[in-house]
Computed example of a mutant assay.
Amino acid sequence: MSRFKTDSKKKLNIREDKGQLILIHESFDPKDIFTCGQCFNFYEEDDGSFTAVFLSKIINLKSDGDKVIIDNISLDEFYDIFYDYFDLNTNYEKIKNYISIDETLKKATEYGAGIRILNQEFFETLISFIISANNQIPRIKKSVRIISKMYGDYIGEYRGRDYYSFPTAASLSKAKSEDLREFARVGFRDKRIVEAANIINDGYFDFEEDIKMKTPDLRKKLQELPGIGPKVADCILLFAFHKRETFPVDVWIKRVMEALFIKKEVPKKQISEYADKYFGENAGYVQQYLFYYGRENAIGK
């Protein structure tokens, strides 16, 4: 499976209770995690919980004071699948303390205190972020769900809603670009999605080997695919390949960096260079806190 996995897992403060799991964790808030722009395959429910799909599993999570209530997943499944997905081997309290080098970053980490960077499946991440180019999050989410229904496998029903797995590269490579444009509403990205699926299906990437590549080399390899520019490549590096030194620069990050750090308008490349210089190996974490803080508070808009 094309996803990041840790070799060992630390024991969590988690227990089973009446068919649900109760997780006690100081850096885990489903709202912060799912609404900070890093993933698209989820629903926000009326009760404030979040239902997400990952590796053909449906999981529902809700904050309740200092607890996270987790539904529809067994304890074994949580450790086997969602431990790595939620990056639970990483100490985010330590990271937040380390990167809070000024008042701005302190405010950003406090605002998004429950963020965890997801380790997502490679192919779904790649296609999702091709769709994300010059697009809005509600439309991206809708396209991802429609593509899953059209080309994925039926998983089951939860809370009155049917769920489907994200398609494999083999399945999506057989799609017609005109169907993606008409039904999934992906616009100009239609042909790029089918072309990328064909290239992946033909074996252009070997996740287990490619994750060992140096980040600049892997970024270059990603950008050889249709529909993948610098920002999309960096999102894939950060969210699928666990390259936490990566700093994707989109419209919001550009505004935030210019308003809070650089104090003038500059090219995106200069923002990437600034992040590399000042944030280093933790740039990806900084990016997520700043993106969430900046977008939610309309900084620089």
Results as ranks from 00 to 15, higher is better:
30 P>I: 09
94 K>R: 14
94 K>Y: 12
300 G>A: 07
298 A>Y: 13
9 K>D: 10
51 T>D: 06
131 I>D: 00
287 Q>I: 05
128 S>H: 02
254 K>W: 06
20 Q>D: 15
240 A>C: 08
31 K>G: 07
203 G>S: 11
76 D>M: 07
117 I>T: 04
10 K>L: 14
209 E>N: 12
11 K>V: 14
136 Q>L: 14
54 F>N: 10
269 K>Q: 14
159 R>H: 11
249 V>A: 06
134 N>L: 06
270 Q>R: 15
47 D>L: 11
171 S>G: 05
241 F>I: 06
273 E>L: 14
43 Y>M: 12
205 F>C: 04
249 V>R: 04
13 N>I: 12
281 E>V: 15
192 R>H: 15
115 I>W: 01
202 D>T: 07
101 I>G: 07
77 E>R: 12
164 Y>W: 12
147 I>F: 05
90 T>S: 09
161 R>E: 13
201 N>L: 00
193 I>Y: 05
127 I>T: 00
32 D>K: 08
282 N>F: 09
155 I>F: 06
130 I>R: 01
236 I>K: 03
271 I>C: 04
262 I>D: 03
206 D>H: 13
120 Q>P: 01
230 P>I: 09
267 P>D: 10
223 Q>R: 14
37 G>C: 04
63 S>T: 12
257 M>I: 08
200 I>W: 00
136 Q>V: 11
189 R>I: 04
212 K>W: 07
47 D>E: 10
174 K>M: 08
245 E>G: 13
258 E>G: 02
146 I>G: 01
24 I>V: 12
210 D>H: 02
300 G>L: 02
